[in-house]
Nucleic acid binder design. Structure first.
Lengths: 189, 189
DNA sequence: GCGGTTTTTGACCTAGAAGTACAATACCAT
DNA sequence: ATGGTATTGTACTTCTAGGTCAAAAACCGC
């Protein structure tokens, strides 16, 4: 019982993620968060323990969404290269928004100073690496990809590349350049 | 005439760079900067217009140092691969400090919100890309490297990879893993 | 040593970030 | 409708980041 909440916590986390994505952690104030969520600051702190806690939840939400997207993409049938290309493009954020990847931004901004952020980032990166690894094993098995490179190594390289791309995307530049890089990466597999 | 400055501005910028490197821009306070430089806050603001201005100078200093290092490295004679490996290792910050690359951190933290930082980052990245490109052209000419890939594309890929690596380094993990990735990259050239 | 000039120091100021308190509100069960 | 409970909004508090200022200090030329 009691008064019912006038917003959905899940949706609020999504919106918060979006704002953090645009402005970074330090660059986002509680007041802005409350406005963005269309609620008062009291509700914000009543629902989420702190700005930092909300940030962590936003990062986790991001991880989930990304991983869900990735796994669904690689469960679908079809040739591997186009799917890899699409995955890299999406992860690096090539296209519309010039924001890069929240997790990369978070890792670079808070990095060593924040063990929890670090941990979440590590988890996402290694999960992505695992998904890439499986895709590459598959691709090698079907003969679509070269077999003279260890899948693990290649997967690590792809992760590094996609992270770097997301930073480059954030600093700006023609989207065409980024798809060239991605094409080159895919061709080399 | 007038009272002589009791510290060297150049050295101060170096130390400031180091602190920003460790703590990020938002995570570093003017008080901390002053203490680190061994001066009072008044002197800080008397010499540098603002925290932001000092940050920009620190980033520029970093760019200069990195480019100087890189060009000297590729002017030296000898086989190309070991030198590329060393360059990637140094740029990504593999080894001792777990700090990644200041410029990458800055780009990810302030990114789109700060045009000046963006510009400095872009300049550094494209200079590095140019140096890589020349090295690869050279390596192809001497027959050390494969010639079936456009040097420009390869150079872009290396830049993306090294940026990504610096983020991974910052989030932590065994240094061995990173040298494996680098070895893989070099082998593919 | 003195005047002019510049630097240094540390106290001071202000704005806004992060979080709290509390009265008002809205619901449910009875 | 009424009591109990939980949420809401906003005013309030605290603290610190970022920056300023005035007085003391250190130098140079004369």
């Amino acid at each position: 019982m009691g008064r019912p909440m006038q917003f959905e916590a899940g949706e609020a986390v999504n919106r918060a993620m979006d704002l953090f994505w645009r402005q970074g952690y330090a660059g986002t104030t509680p007041q802005e968060l409350a406005s963005e969520l269309g609620i008062g600051k009291g509700s914000l702190y009543n629902t989420f323990e702190s700005k930092h806690a909300l940030f962590l939840r936003a990062l986790q939400r991001y991880s989930e969404a990304r991983l869900e997207y990735l796994t669904s993409m690689f469960q679908a049938p079809g040739p591997i290269r186009p799917r890899l290309k699409q995955a890299l493009t999406a992860l690096a954020g090539v296209g519309e928004h010039q924001r890069g990847c929240v997790m990369v931004n978070a890792a670079a901004e808070l990095g060593t100073a924040d063990a929890e952020v670090n941990h979440i980032a590590n988890e996402l990166f290694s999960h992505i690496e695992a998904v890439f690894g499986q895709a590459i094993v598959q691709g090698q098995a079907t003969g679509e990809l070269r077999t003279d490179q260890a899948p693990d190594t290649v997967a690590s390289q792809l992760v590094a590349s996609v992270i770097g791309l997301s930073v480059l995307v954030k600093t700006g530049g023609p989207a065409e350049r980024f798809s060239n890089i991605i094409d080159g990466l895919i061709d080399g597999l």
